[in-house]
Design a protein around this nucleic acid. Structure first.
Length: 259
DNA sequence: ATGACAGATCAAATCTGA
């Protein structure tokens, strides 16, 4: 089974790219983030024509997460249990489903904006809720994984230049402790292989030639439990999908499982 | 083998992203 995660930065603007990628990469399950679409405008028919059912948590202009599956959908979830809201609104940042016997969550972790900003505290609270879900579901016989845009670089090597991130979000100790908490719940970072260069970055800013210069970050992550990790045969970042005009600023992370 | 932000929004300037 092939499972992938991709921050698509608007499923509307990216639909031609998405359908093309589905046809070439042939994932069985795809976790999407940053749909930037309303529930009504989600292109469910187009995806169904390609054989994919969708579990959608759409929030309109911002956020949005979905799980696409061509191996069935059981126990769909369109909200993260106990997820905190921001300024009184519970945002569309998670979708879950059991697909072909594997339980997955697609998550779009809050950005945090700046250290000390209320959004930063919101990010940490949101990750605490994610940990609670992980604790309930990880460690069983059924493979379990959380895939998505975590907006955290797990290690210093996961950003192109640490000096550029001094005092910034995505690399702080508290954010990384939240990832460590997921590991405490029995999950492990499924580290993908890069198709080029040494570090498997998954995000490159649109500006300042970041992609050609490989000024990227590894922030799209796959956290799998023991059963999931044991089934992993291969994992890689498909940086080809970041190339050319009309690309998302994130590349898909692809995991092949022996299940 | 890659190119100087992009997307969504009551439509132009602003917000968000990281």
């Amino acid at each position: 089974m092939r499972i992938a995660t991709w921050n698509i930065n608007s499923i509307t603007a990216r639909l031609p790219r998405l359908t093309q990628w589905l046809e070439t990469a042939q994932p069985d399950v795809l976790c999407l983030q940053e749909l930037k679409v309303s529930e009504e405008a989600f292109p469910g028919d187009e995806l169904r024509a390609l054989g994919y059912e969708s579990v959608v948590n759409a929030g309109g202009r911002w956020n949005g997460a979905a799980v696409l599956s061509r191996v069935g959908v059981e126990d769909p979830a369109t909200a993260l249990p106990e997820a905190p809201g921001y300024e009184g609104v519970v945002e569309a940042r998670a979708a879950g489903a059991t697909c072909g016997g594997v339980r997955v969550w697609s998550v779009y972790v809050p950005n945090g904006r700046e250290v000390g900003h209320p959004h930063y505290e919101y990010k940490l609270e949101w990750l605490a809720a994610l940990r609670a879900t992980a604790e309930k579901s990880a460690g069983g016989p059924q493979p379990f994984a959380i895939l998505g845009d975590f907006n955290i670089a797990p290690a210093d090597a996961d950003v192109w230049d640490l000096a550029e991130f001094e005092g910034a979000t995505h690399v702080t100790q508290r954010e990384r402790e939240a990832l460590a908490a997921l590991e405490g719940a029995g999950l492990k970072d499924i580290y993908p292989r890069p198709l080029k260069y040494d570090v498997p970055f998954t995000y490159w800013d649109y500006r300042q030639l970041c992609f050609p210069k490989n000024r990227g970050m590894r922030i799209d992550l796959v956290y799998g439990d023991e059963a999931f990790g044991a089934a992993v045969r291969d994992a890689y970042v498909d940086r080809e999908a970041r190339k050319g005009k009309g690309a998302s600023d994130h590349a898909p992370v692809v995991v092949d499982l022996d299940v």
